[in-house]
């Protein structure tokens, strides 16, 4: 059984937001909302200033609090690649999952249900990459199966220094950033 995740190279990412636009188009994300976004983190003082640019989204955590706190089972882990999904017509819009997410990756869709990144599960099932990965002009984003030690994402993790986001929140996120 696959366990999909992403590896994103912050050295290559230029923050062009193509991933954000591709996601909005592919998933018809309503105006004013985003399933993915760009983070610009600057640190240091002149002359030793550095910046990390990251494309961020739902981390499809191995221990997803949004799934365990859902009172109806709308928030669930899809057996296909362990992707965290929301069944729209089971969601009551209580927003517990929105509050439970350390990444603030969820939002309330104008139609009332809670929405978020799906890793473009509909594309992945057809053997394609998620929309954000497929359009990245610097090829900084990689999607694949962490359970397969020979997958591109597993090999990148083994060979490059990396970090996930907010590992201390304890949800075991599945997006890693190469530094």
């Amino acid at each position: 059984m696959a366990r999909y995740g992403m590896v994103i190279d912050t050295v290559r990412c230029v923050g062009c937001m193509d991933c954000v636009v591709a996601c909005k188009t592919e998933n018809q994300v309503p105006e004013g909302f985003g399933r993915d976004w760009i983070a610009y983190e600057t640190r240091g003082a002149f002359p030793t200033v550095s910046m990390e640019i990251r494309s961020e989204r739902c981390n499809h955590c191995d221990d997803a609090p949004c799934v365990s706190c859902c009172p109806t089972g709308a928030s669930h882990v899809d057996p296909f690649g362990q992707i965290v999904m929301v069944t729209h017509d089971v969601c009551i819009g209580c927003k517990a999952c929105v509050a439970s997410c350390p990444y603030d990756a969820r939002f309330v869709h104008p139609e009332g249900y809670v929405d978020k990144c799906t890793f473009c599960i509909h594309r992945v099932k057809e053997g394609k990459d998620p929309a954000c990965v497929s359009v990245c002009p610097t090829h900084c984003m990689h999607f694949g199966d962490f359970d397969d030690p020979n997958s591109r994402v597993s090999r990148l993790l083994a060979s490059r220094r990396n970090h996930p986001l907010k590992a201390e929140a304890g949800t075991r996120p599945r997006i890693y950033y190469l530094v």
Binding site: G32, G34, E41, T42, E56, K95, F107
Partner: peptide
């Protein structure tokens, strides 16, 4: 200095 800028502006979630 540490500064974080997000492009995300989701209703009910941000800032």
């Amino acid at each position: 200095m540490r500064e974080l800028i997000l492009t995300r502006q989701n209703h009910l979630v941000d800032p």
